[in-house]
Design a protein around this nucleic acid. Sequence first.
DNA 1: CGAATGACAATGT
DNA 2: TACATTGCCATTC
Length: 108
Amino acid sequence: MEDFTERVVKLLKEVPAGTVASYGQIARLAGNARAARQVTRILHSMSRKHGIPWHRIVNAKGEIVISDGETAFEQEERLRDEGVPVIGGKRVDMERYRWDPGFDGEEW
DNA sequence: CGAATGACAATGT
DNA sequence: TACATTGCCATTC
């Protein structure tokens, strides 16, 4: 049993390229359905310097809602590069590219 | 230790 | 679809 943060980081690394996952989805898989906001904090804080694929994480509607314009743009570019079309500069087809883990809550 | 904070979510209008 | 509200909870101050 690790900290919520640790688990979130692990889950993020499990997200395959070409798919996107929502903050809430990650939070739920990590064990806390309501800790979506912590996932945001973790990403904002850990991201770059920790080799975490933060760009595959968008909000529940499949939109990029990052407050920092530059970071948001980088995410958009990376997603396109992985095969995920970004509509209107900030949206992806959630139904189609949503990450679908085979399990429900990691490997327990 | 109490209050503020946030790359969100869910619901209502 | 867009905007406003309210709820949430770990981390920071």
